[in-house]
Simulated assay, not measured.
Amino acid sequence: MELFGFDVRWTLPERLLSIEDYRRAARRRLPAMVWNYIDGGADDLVTLRDNRSAFDRWSLVPGVLKGIEDHDTAATVAGIPLALPVLLAPTGASGMAHWRTDLLAAAVAERMGTRYVVSTASSWSLEEIAEAAREAHLFQLYPRAGTVTSSLMRRAWSAGYRTMMVTVDVPVKGSREGERRTGMRGNGLPPILTPRTALNFARHPRWTYDVVRHQRFGGYNFVEQTGIAAAVESLHIQERELMQSTLNWDDVAWMRDQWKGALYLKGILNPEDAEQAVRLGFDGVVVSNHGGRQLDFAPASLDALPDVAAAVGGKAEVLLDGGVRRGSDVVKALALGASAVMIGRPYLYGVAVSGAAGVRHVLEILREEIVRTLTLMGVASVGDLDRSSVTPRHHEFK
């Protein structure tokens, strides 16, 4: 409507123009315990912070007068054509952000021309998510060579998943002190209820109502029931069966033999590990430090990317996960050797703020920023990005 010649639009109180805007809005909407679970990291948060600051160490190299009208953001991952080189990463217990996160993330991802990676610890079962989706999404496995792993792989294949990511950087859960200080137990659910946490829940009545009514916050690939008791049992199964420090290369080689679809190894920072994955026939690797939630002082994902990409040498796809908050971050990652990136926290911010609309807007923001960055750089397509598209900001290196 117009008022005194001005275009007046009714909007949310927040000016949601960036991923950081969504982050601030999500923090206000979630209890402190949940916020620390979603946004926190391990120990002193060094790797968590480095995942972001690593992008600041690279400048983009622009070219002018290129005469380019259209800009292509299409990419391919595991043979799947994507309209946007951004996948939605697996996030365990995502029902704590919004009780329908898994279903909404899958639906929005496919509408935006990309895919969702369903977590082993998802708040909806892999079958429920597949039944609600129209496209084939990806499945992420916390592995152990044995009965539980075999069952999950068979279930995923039967449900229509043809691409699997095996996460290998969680031999034990990292120490996330922020969660524990705000009421999360050291081993996860259930929370420790104190007068302080109860008051914090009371200050977030919408979130508390959804949790109590729907009880979709545990890992429902291990139990058939919903509810607090089922969530606790699912967590115990995960830690007992899937977080194993004895896991070795023979175990993932066995998984490669068993899985007939595309297979990626997630949690790679060392070029030698990437080379071994290629030798075993993996179709790709995901350069990731688990969002800074596991080993503190591990390299930032972007810092590790160039050496991993060089070690792979085009024999497998390389994806990046960790710290992506801007379209320019996506451009830098692609220039340094990634085929695509994955985002976790950004879409959780979006879904916590406004459900499916928030997830969609987060992806739209990234798409607009990618196109704007390509335009300003004079680059026609994300496929044209390479090492010459970026340059180190030398004053950052000492």
Rank of each mutant, 00 (worst) to 15 (best):
R256H: 09
A316L: 05
R326K: 14
W207E: 02
A74Y: 03
G146E: 06
L235K: 12
E110Q: 05
E20V: 15
V168L: 07
P191N: 12
G160Y: 05
D169H: 13
G292V: 08
T246N: 11
T182F: 11
V46W: 14
M96V: 15
S150P: 02
L376N: 05
S150Y: 08
A132I: 00
R387G: 08
G313P: 03
L152F: 01
K260A: 08
A159T: 03
T114G: 05
V64G: 11
A229I: 10
R203M: 15
F4C: 04
P205Y: 08
P392E: 04
R203V: 06
L199P: 01
S119G: 05
H204S: 00
Y209H: 10
R154T: 09
L193D: 01
L103N: 03
R155K: 13
R176K: 12
D70R: 15
R100P: 00
I228C: 01
L385E: 00
V8K: 01
G378K: 11
R196L: 10
L366D: 02
T114L: 07
G183F: 08
E2H: 15
V324N: 02
Y347P: 09
G284C: 09
P62Y: 05
L138W: 10
D384Q: 12
A333W: 02
L104M: 10
G92E: 07
G327H: 07
E20A: 14
A121I: 08
L265N: 00
A54M: 04
T226Q: 04
P306L: 05
G67R: 07
R185G: 12
L263V: 00
T163N: 07
H214G: 01
L269H: 08
L17G: 13
E369I: 12
K66Y: 09
G92C: 11
N187H: 15
R345C: 06
Q140P: 08
E69C: 09
A335Y: 00
H137N: 05
W207K: 03
S151L: 13
R216P: 01
Q276M: 14
M1P: 00
D307I: 06
V34M: 03
A304Q: 07
E239H: 11
Y142C: 02
E275L: 15
I129S: 05
A310L: 15
N200R: 14
W58C: 01
G67V: 06
D384I: 04
A136Q: 13
W249V: 01
E135T: 06
F297N: 13
A262N: 06
L199H: 13
Y161P: 05
H290P: 03
R206L: 14
G146K: 10
V341W: 08
K398T: 13
W259I: 04
P190L: 09
A231N: 01
H137W: 14
R176D: 02
A75E: 03
P143R: 09
R23E: 13
N36S: 15
V379I: 10
T375D: 08
L305E: 01
E2N: 14
L82H: 01
S328W: 08
A357N: 06
G261E: 04
T47G: 01
D296N: 11
M33S: 14
I370W: 06
S388R: 15
L138I: 15
